[in-house]
Amino acid sequence: MTSIQVADQTFVAAPGAAVAEILTGENNWRRWWPDLTLAVREDRADKGIRWSVTGALSGTMEVWLEPALDGVILHYFLHAEPKAPIRDLSAANRARRVAGKDMSFEIKSRLEAGRPAGVAPAHTAPPAR
C-alpha cells in the first residue's frame, strides 16, 4: 500500500474528447502539479490518461473519463510514495486531494462556462428551429 492515496470524481457536462484535450496539455500539468514530473504511460484519448509520477512523489496517477448522462465523470487517482519523509501524512494526502479537485474544477468551469444550470450542454442540445 502506498502512503499517498487519492481517489475522487467530478461530473463534467462536456464530451470526453473536450476534457481529454485539456488533459493532454503539458503546461496544464506543470500548473496543476508543479512539484511533479509526469510521463504519459497510456493516452486513452476520450477515456483519459495515465501517468508515471516522479519528483516530490514516486508512483502513478490517472484521470479516467467515464461517459455519463450528457457528459463524463472525471475520476482522479493518485497512488504514490513521497521522496522525502513527511511528518503529517494526513495533511499530505489532503493537499494532493485538493490539487486534484482544483484540476477537475478548472476543467469543469472552462468547459461549462456560460451554460445555465439545468440546461443541456451545447453538444447535446437539440438543434434550434
Results as ranks from 00 to 15, higher is better:
residue 54 T to I: 07
residue 62 E to P: 01
residue 57 L to R: 13
residue 64 W to S: 04
residue 75 H to C: 02
residue 63 V to R: 10
residue 60 T to E: 10
residue 95 A to G: 11
residue 88 D to L: 07
residue 88 D to T: 05
residue 90 S to P: 00
residue 52 S to E: 13
residue 50 R to W: 07
residue 81 E to A: 05
residue 57 L to V: 09
residue 74 L to G: 00
residue 70 D to L: 07
residue 97 R to E: 11
residue 73 I to Y: 09
residue 81 E to V: 01
residue 71 G to K: 06
residue 83 K to H: 11
residue 67 P to Y: 09
residue 98 V to C: 01
residue 86 I to R: 12
residue 88 D to P: 14
residue 79 H to T: 01
residue 72 V to Y: 00
residue 95 A to Y: 07
residue 56 A to W: 04
residue 75 H to A: 01
residue 86 I to V: 15
residue 60 T to D: 14
residue 89 L to C: 06
residue 61 M to T: 08
residue 92 A to V: 03
residue 70 D to K: 01
residue 86 I to H: 05
residue 102 D to S: 13
residue 72 V to N: 03
residue 65 L to F: 01
residue 90 S to H: 06
residue 101 K to P: 00
residue 61 M to F: 13
residue 86 I to F: 01
residue 82 P to H: 04
residue 95 A to V: 05
residue 80 A to N: 14
residue 51 W to E: 04
residue 102 D to I: 11
residue 98 V to A: 13
residue 63 V to W: 13
residue 55 G to N: 09
residue 98 V to M: 05
residue 84 A to V: 04
residue 55 G to S: 11
residue 102 D to G: 04
residue 60 T to R: 09
residue 100 G to K: 10
residue 96 R to M: 15
residue 94 R to I: 08
residue 54 T to F: 08
residue 60 T to F: 04
residue 64 W to P: 00
residue 91 A to V: 13
residue 78 L to G: 06
residue 93 N to S: 03
residue 87 R to F: 01
residue 82 P to D: 05
residue 59 G to S: 08
residue 83 K to E: 14
residue 61 M to L: 14
residue 51 W to C: 10
residue 86 I to E: 13
residue 87 R to P: 00
residue 73 I to R: 11
residue 66 E to N: 03
residue 58 S to N: 14
residue 79 H to L: 02
residue 74 L to N: 00
residue 81 E to P: 02
residue 76 Y to R: 12
residue 50 R to E: 08
residue 67 P to K: 03
residue 92 A to T: 12
residue 89 L to Q: 12
residue 62 E to L: 10
residue 93 N to A: 02
residue 84 A to R: 15
residue 57 L to E: 12
residue 62 E to R: 10
residue 69 L to V: 03
residue 61 M to C: 08
residue 50 R to S: 10
residue 76 Y to Q: 08
residue 64 W to L: 03
residue 98 V to W: 05
residue 69 L to Q: 05
residue 97 R to G: 06
residue 86 I to M: 09
residue 84 A to I: 04
residue 71 G to I: 04
residue 80 A to H: 12
residue 94 R to Q: 11
residue 68 A to M: 10
